[in-house]
Amino acid sequence: MSILKTQNLAVGYKHGRHPPRVVARDIDVSLHRGEFVCLLGPNGAGKSTLIRTLVGMQPPLDGQVYLMGRDIADMSAIEVAQVISVVLTDRIGVGIMAVRDLVGLGRYPHTDWIGRFTDEDERVVSWAIRAARAEDLAYRNVAELSDGERQKVMIARALAQQPDLMILDEPTAFLDLPRRAEIMALLQDLAHSTGKAILLSTHDLDLALRCADRIYLLPFEGGLQTGAPEDLILNGAFEGAFQSDGVRFDADTGAFKLNAQRGRISVAVSGEGRRAYWTKRALERAGFRVGDAGAEWCVDIGEGDVWCVEHGGVARECDSIADLIVALKGEHG
């Protein structure tokens, strides 16, 4: 049985008597145990709205969300809390609190009226901190944590809630690349080792493509598409979703390419290896078109740190890429 299932779900906002503003519609997905799923899509396509609807923070405009086979609309907050836990983008201002106590708040749906801990609760909290690899933070003050540390702690808190499904809204925002990779790897590992389903939204395309078991792709139009990351690349779904004037998804490399103002002047680059690659990148960045042999300008990458520019039989040597760009631009004012 799927943990979470949606049927004809439409998400968006309702303001009084105005007609509702539908952000995304016809969403049919199901999430299974042990699955690590990334929700991708351009800004404004409705990722956060979808996430908020899935966790019951806002009502769907149409359709149903089923949690363990039950309609989420018929479930109490505490019943939902025993299945789903979340990590949100909300700023947390818990005041003076040790990390361990914050993680302990995750036990909320399991403790008595005043929140007393049993040995079992203590054990789960310790496990959650260990699983989120936050042992060395356990007795630090929450207010003193860095962004990356705080994110780990919030993941530990979500784990302590012992959910079947964890939903995270952009958990890697504001983190540097190593921290992002660390968090993604951690979540992937948690999904596979604990059998929890994990759904997260992210803008980190590259990491998502490398880590996710499945991708939910939410473009501006055309509805949500799901599939293995590679399938979505091969069938062109990615290119469609992230189409814009500025960039283009390159299905060959799985990365974005800037649709730089393709220059009128073409420059041929001869040479191979790393230096040739970065020289081409630099030329594209500076607004030249990297063309084939026979272009009006030729750049020859020689031995050592020398770039040889040739134009109309006149040759000139540059000793850095910056120098090369200046030389080319100088000619064309």
């Binding site: 019951g56 949100l88 909300d90 947390i92 708040l105």
Partner: peptide, 16 residues
């Protein structure tokens, strides 16, 4: 105590 995390988190932990 749950509200220390803000209303959204509090709700997600089962608070009405």
């Amino acid at each position: 105590n749950a509200l220390l995390l803000g209303e959204n988190y509090a709700r997600s932990m089962g608070l009405n």
